[in-house]
Design a protein around this nucleic acid. Sequence first.
DNA 1: CGGGGGGTTTACAACGATGGAAATCTTGAG
DNA 2: CTCAAGATTTCCATCGTTGTAAACCCCCCG
Lengths: 337, 337
Amino acid sequence: MRVRLRDVAERAGVSVKTVSNVVNGYVHVAPSTRAHVQGVLDEMGYRPNLSARHLRAGRTGVIALALPELDNPYFAELTGFVVQAAEDNGWTVLVDQTDGLRERELFVAAGIRHHLIDGAILSPVALGAEDLVRRSPEDIPLVLLGEKISVGPVDHVAIDNVAAARLATEHLLSRGRTRPAAIGGQTGAESGVAHLRRRGWEDALTAAGLPVDESLVAEVPTFRREHGAEAMRTLLDRGPAPDAVFCFNDTLALGALRVLADRGLRVPEDVVVVGIDDVDDGRFAVPTLSTIAPDKEGIARTAVRMLAERFADGGADLSPRDVRAGFELIARESTMG
Amino acid sequence: MRVRLRDVAERAGVSVKTVSNVVNGYVHVAPSTRAHVQGVLDEMGYRPNLSARHLRAGRTGVIALALPELDNPYFAELTGFVVQAAEDNGWTVLVDQTDGLRERELFVAAGIRHHLIDGAILSPVALGAEDLVRRSPEDIPLVLLGEKISVGPVDHVAIDNVAAARLATEHLLSRGRTRPAAIGGQTGAESGVAHLRRRGWEDALTAAGLPVDESLVAEVPTFRREHGAEAMRTLLDRGPAPDAVFCFNDTLALGALRVLADRGLRVPEDVVVVGIDDVDDGRFAVPTLSTIAPDKEGIARTAVRMLAERFADGGADLSPRDVRAGFELIARESTMG
DNA sequence: CGGGGGGTTTACAACGATGGAAATCTTGAG
DNA sequence: CTCAAGATTTCCATCGTTGTAAACCCCCCG
């Protein structure tokens, strides 16, 4: 059987509460008692029963991180930062994959298994702001990532997607290009990342006095590599090749690079390419991929901090916060050759 | 405040235990009572407090899945199956990334946070059998994946890596090739997947009466795409191009394909390529990648079932089991063109 | 009409930890 | 040497749920 406070107390010849006090660093414990009890604790290898502790405290010390897909490298990297930030707070992270399914996202927003997690960080795909309006005080604190729901009744962290897309496009223009294509549009999505990044692309064109040519936009069903490739093929088949490509994320860009190579177009000489996310694969691609690097660590730390603030006294009364994370342009071979 | 059994009991005018009996589907509850209590339960939106329930039961209903890297598509896909299998058992999965670090793997094997998880499924990289010998009865049940530790004091699930590698190589030979290279060797690893897959490759060559040519083997520091590419370049620079390549996993193969394209070698006309894992990316690569598909779902279900058996009465007394999962060859364009 | 006997329901005691009040022990002043 | 204040330690109740055993009720048989 596992070691309980009682077992330690018996062996040490003190009360259960004294042992508890030692474990929790309570002030009024005589140094000699503390040393003795600590010795017995170490000797017996006591570890607190979290179920019991949390039953008492009303918290579990576990938070959930729910992402649409774990095999997307951006999310995989972000996960690492969230786990780290949570660890610094003494929390454990339960990672969950929603597959972008409404049902699973609602499940997370509702607390997964009641009383199992204290709060959740969710990157919604299917959920709309309307799904979150009727949150009751029984619901756990929630922090949203990304811009599917940019204003709503809960906390939110994201980069400024319009500005990021505009910076990426301006970088392409600064390389002397005048016909930058955009891969990643999604019709029907009034809100969401795709919409915002497209607007950034348009803004850059307009600001530079260039026309917005619809034939330079390629739509994709998902942000996965294969659809980046497909979109690139469509663009090339459609007419005169663009002299630059702005992909709405790195995975799409990696697919596009592949097709450009297939078609014998040189990057960056013939076409320059830029993405968003700064995933590891882009650093090793041939050529290495220029990109907009969101401050992933900052996003993770902010999300965790927001949860911490909600847990604190009065946290439930805070009005919803909306934080913009930083980002920067990283120019690599695909635009600089 | 959240709804407790007691609140429901008061409203329904019955005892707490009766409500508990209804919640848990105890047999001896009068139909009328059951209906009434159920109505109040629904009306008040009762959800059990898992901390309390698990404090009573001695279990938490959470298992951990610890993998070296989540951004490896094979592991990402496997995760999905494990989550599904666990859900069928009413368990929740806590996904953890170890980065192949000894310290983190030990942490998982020791139970992460005491009493937080009931058991763990771990794919070890750094841990050796010797690390697991001194497991005490206080330690949680553990199931190992992969073949870093193939015999040891704990349960284990893996495919027969020698046989799988042999099947892959034989497939290359059946396409009329006689100089199949091997990408993925790792010196210094006496045990482990790399070692076993290399042996399968050798076995196939020997059985076919072909010489084992060391210059056809390329070592890699990791199984990531960039190192597959690097290894392929090394092989091509080293001398006469091989007419076939067996990569120890699909990610390496995807990197190799990239280099072959760069060098103007046609796949499958000039070189045929096969991998292991059957990851999604391989299905969309150009050309599509032939591979050995391990029964991921079977692996996941087996691992979860083994944990379930350990949880059952007397489960701790079972001797360590070693299960071989199935696999099959999937021939695609990279070998069949 | 009393006494089983079965199905139902309830009271009580855990599970392990901790806050708060109460009890005990020190120590120093008077 | 007594007493009070402060430092330590202990006792008790409690978090929400469920196993156990006992209580209860109703119906039927003798």
